[in-house]
Structures are given as C-alpha cells and as structure tokens.
C-alpha cells in the first residue's frame, strides 16, 4: 500500500485540510450559535470564546492551505498538457467534458472566496473576543458569513471529489 507523489498532495489538499476545515466549521458554528448571554455564565462565555477562536482560526488556516495547495501544487498536474492528465482525460470524451468546462472552472475560482470570508470571521471573533456576546447583530452577521465561507468551499469540495472520481490524478 503506497501513495504516489500526486496522490499524496491530492490527499493533503482534499482530505487532511478538508477534514480540518470541517472540524473548524463545526466547532465555530456551534460556538457562534450558542454565544448568547442568557445561556451562559461569564466563565462559560470565556471558555466558549476560546474554543470559538480555535475553531475559526482552524477553518481560516485550512481554507488558505486548501486553496494554496490546490492552485499551486495540484492544479498544474491536473491541467498538464499530456494525454493522461485529468483535464485531457475529461476533455477527450464529450460525456465528461462538462466536468472540466463547468465543474473545474467553477471550483478553481469560487474556492478562493472561502479563505477571505473565513479570515473575516476569525478577525471579528478575535477583535471582539468575549465582547461579541454583547453584539447580537454582529454575532448573527458573523454566523451568516461563516456559513457562506463554508458554502462556497462545499461547492468547490464537492466538485473536486466528483472530478477526482471521474478522472483521478495518479
């Protein structure tokens, strides 16, 4: 059982950083959702904000790591001008060409919005810290932006998984 160099980086890009991203999102979402003053004590707020900082930072770091490894390491192998690259494989068959024309073209661009949004969320959480509990409107805004960051990454991730299934990078 072994992984090729390409498979290793595809794994890091999609699975390792993807898992960190999901964990960060789950932790951050729960933290933001429950950060309401009537639901906790001062000590509870502080403990939750610490977890919130960890969750949102993990998601932002994972989002940056995913797009940087995806664009600068994995993507050149995908689009390499050789007959057995995934791009060439997809375009060679009219039945799979749309995976490139629509799926990959959308994924490679939309994914880059996620780290911007995730960084914004982490910034808001660090800026206000425990004080975020006093700003319910901003907490809801942060929750919305956090979900948007996840949504665009989910679109990119889903297309990435489906394209890899159709034309794997070996």
């Amino acid at each position: 059982m072994s992984l090729t160099h390409h498979e290793f980086w595809t794994l890091v890009h999609g699975m390792v950083l993807g898992a960190l991203f999901l964990l960060g999102f789950a932790g951050g979402l729960e933290g933001l959702w429950a950060l309401r003053p009537h639901q906790m004590t001062s000590a509870g707020i502080r403990a939750r904000v610490l977890r919130l900082k960890i969750g949102t930072t993990a998601m932002a770091v994972a989002a940056w790591g995913t797009v940087i490894t995806g664009t600068w390491i994995v993507y050149p192998w995908y689009r390499e001008d050789v007959p057995d690259s995934p791009r060439s494989t997809l375009l060679a068959d009219p039945a799979t060409a749309e995976w490139h024309h629509f799926g990959m073209e959308w994924k490679e661009h939309i994914a880059w919005m996620s780290p911007l949004l995730a960084t914004l969320v982490a910034f808001i959480v660090f800026y206000y810290g425990a004080g975020l509990v006093l700003h319910d409107r901003l907490r809801k805004t942060t929750l919305g932006l956090f979900t948007l960051a996840f949504g665009v990454a989910a679109i990119a991730g889903a297309f990435g998984a489906l394209i890899t299934k159709t034309a794997p990078l070996i």
């Binding site: 003053p37 001062s42 707020i45 910034f123 800026y127 425990a130 004080g131 006093l134 901003l138 805004t141």
Partner: peptide, 21 residues
C-alpha cells in the same frame, strides 16, 4: 447585564469590522 459579568470589558468601535466586511 452580561457585560458586567465579563469584568471590565471595554466595548470597541465597530469601524474595523466595517472595514474588514
């Protein structure tokens, strides 16, 4: 209310958040 429980928390201006958004 909860702010008092946060013990000496001084509220910050929202400007930097506006800029980041």
């Amino acid at each position: 209310g909860p702010a008092a429980e946060l013990g000496g928390y001084i509220d910050k201006p929202e400007g930097p958040i506006t800029a980041a958004i």
